[in-house]
Amino acid sequence: MPADPLHILIAAMVSWVNFVTIDVFFKLPERGGVSGATEIGRHIEEGGGALHGGYMMGNIVSSPDASAGTLLASCGVYAAGIPGGLFAALLVYVGNRICYDPGYAGTTGCITATFIVYGFTLIGFSAAEFIVGMVIAILTIQGISHVHSSRLLSTLWRWRQG
């Protein structure tokens, strides 16, 4: 089944909203979880970005969080349906424990993404569109411009703090 570019765009936006909401809700931008994440945040700030957005990007790099959960949940639904998504959540939890992380954000993101992706497959989307959509979503955060994305994430963090 050939993928539709419009569906990929919608899937990218849904994945972006899912993982950024869960990451900000679980206070990932507050501080670096491990010393490496703190160091990445400091270097992004030196390059002109914002500190709390840099911490969140460092946390995404150094342990599997809700973004990895969304990707692996789409992979699981693509290969094996709902049980595949829940199995992927177990794998994300194990991966979080390996990286010295509590693992709430990754597991929660994986389980919510499983049901979101399954719901979208019922209305004509393909799970493959969500896989490439999540790759595009992580590209907009980590791969285009660190300065602008860290400022955007810091703005969202200020809203979360109220």
Partner: peptide
Amino acid sequence: FVGSTLESNAIASKYA
């Protein structure tokens, strides 16, 4: 994915 994340984590903490 987890292996690659672990590698990045180790490189970053060693650098820090």
